[in-house]
Simulated scan of single mutants.
Amino acid sequence: MKRHRLHRRVNGTALDLARMINPVVRGWMAYYGAFYRHALYPLLHRINSYLMRWSMNKYKRLSNWMKATQAMRDAVVRQPRYFAHWAWAKPAVR
């Protein structure tokens, strides 16, 4: 995920990001999740960190971690299947 530089794609929307990463993440979840699920959790939480950084760069009102975390939690409540990895790894509480 690091090479995708998600946090730098501020010209796109969250839907664009979801369309880009969901097939990849679903594949990882299907392949590695069958036998080695616990190894995926750090990666899935890292994707959440990239998404929070993206939201902080895109929306200036989310300029600190607390506001960005709250916005991410609200997004998960509104649309729990928007990003594929949210089924397994909810955004961290900070």
Rank of each mutant, 00 (worst) to 15 (best):
G12N: 04
Y82H: 11
L62Y: 13
R78W: 09
P23R: 14
K60T: 15
T13G: 05
Y31S: 02
N48A: 10
F35K: 09
K2N: 06
A39T: 10
L15G: 05
S63K: 14
H85Q: 08
R3V: 12
H45L: 10
S63V: 06
R94K: 07
P42N: 11
S55M: 11
R26N: 06
W28R: 02
L51D: 04
A14W: 03
H4F: 13
S55H: 12
Y41P: 00
S63E: 11
R46E: 14
A71L: 00
R94F: 13
H45W: 11
N57S: 07
R53Q: 08
R9M: 15
F35E: 07
Y31E: 02
M52L: 09
A87I: 01
A68W: 07
N22E: 03
Y31T: 04
N64Q: 10
A75V: 02
L43G: 02
V24E: 09
Y82V: 02
Q79H: 12
Q70R: 15
M20C: 10
A89P: 03
L40Q: 04
R78E: 15
Y82D: 01
A84F: 03
V76T: 14
Y36D: 03
A68C: 04
Y59K: 04
R61C: 01
A84T: 04
N57Y: 00
Q70C: 08
Y32M: 09
G33Y: 01
F35V: 13
A92M: 15
W28T: 01
A84Y: 06
T13I: 03
V10C: 05
R5I: 06
V93H: 09
L62Q: 03
L15Y: 13
G12P: 06
P80M: 10
N57G: 00
R37P: 01
S63G: 14
K67C: 02
A71E: 10
V10K: 05
R3M: 07
M1K: 02
A84G: 01
Y41F: 09
R53M: 04
A84K: 03
V24F: 11
P42H: 12
W65Q: 05
L6F: 12
Y82K: 08
F35N: 05
H4W: 11
N64Y: 13
R61F: 04
R73M: 14
P91N: 06
A71Y: 15
R9K: 15
F35W: 06
T69S: 08
I47Q: 01
A68S: 12
D74C: 07
N48E: 09
M52A: 08
R8L: 09
Q79Y: 12
S49P: 00
W28A: 07
V77M: 07
G33A: 01
A87K: 15
R26D: 07
G27A: 03
G12C: 05
K60E: 13
R37V: 15
K60Q: 13
